[in-house]
Amino acid sequence: MKKSKINSNTLLLIITIVLFVVMYGAGCAVYSNKGFTHLQTLLNIFITNAGLICVAAGMTCVMLTGGIDISVGSCVAMYCMFLAVGMQAKEDGGWGMSSPVLMLLVLIIGIVFGSVQGYLIAYLDIQPFIVSMAGLFFGRGMTAVISNQQVDIQEPLFKAISQLRIYMPFGIGAYVNKKGKLMVPYISVGVVVALLVVVVIYLMLKYTKFGRSIYAIGGNQQSATLMGLNVKKVKFMTYILSGFLTAIGGICFCLNTMNGNTQQAIGLEMDAISSAVIGGTLLTGGVGNVIGTLFGVMINGTISSLVKTNGKLDSSWPNVITAILLCFFILLQAVFAKMKEAKK
């Protein structure tokens, strides 16, 4: 007899996908007159959340090992500010550097930041939350140290990358707008990068030794150690990976906002964590994958998009709704965990 393959983990993922479809469907039904049904609206969610997708992918890896990293939001703010001030002309108080060099520097800073956090967590056995909370405040403070003002990016190359539109092939989802002009849906460079990150992380988690070790450690650290896995090293590497992906996310985020300011990306860590949790990643580690996280991000994006389309609701509603959703999914996880224990 063929055993049914649906266990509680796939069930969580299915719930997430259904939730997304229902939410988006409801949005389409209610706001069809405001253009919610166009493919572009869906793609816009990708465009605004490209950075978040990268960050959340890194967060998923960290959470799979049973850790957490709440420093990502302020790191993104720090990278944006770094890019913005870096590209500002020297006369205006910036550093007047070219964007490719700066982007490379951001990636290096990301790796360094990740490795410091990883070292403290993996080798010195400090709680991930404490370390990354210090990281959070460090990042936010550093942003203010770099500059206290809002700095807009004027650099031509970076601007060109930001405004580059990649149109959908064969004019899928094209429509004629009110002025009678044919609109072909497009995505930005950030989206391409983000999707690439998702695919690479998915393959890495599924098919490489490193990826499988991450699952093993999250599942049961003791047995992973007994199996001969170098737990500390894998954890260390995971935080470096997260730091690197956060740096990529920071660049994507910056491509979207085109400025740096101290209030940027506040609460992004919350979005990333809730995306991963909503996408079926267990907080205790060992279960989850990056596709679920992608859907988690999309759900978060849909919520803010719906609130924005409504136009009357207060801007703090998305935060509240995300928190409620997160709470709901955490409870769901707890219930599933209890059920599993009962089965044993």
Binding site: L120, D125, I126, F137, F138
Partner: peptide, 24 residues
Amino acid sequence: SSAQAPVFKAIVVILIVVIQSGPV
């Protein structure tokens, strides 16, 4: 400034927890 102060506090936190940590 009050926005920059967290940097120093973060460093202090890390120093304290590092001193407290088992391996050290």
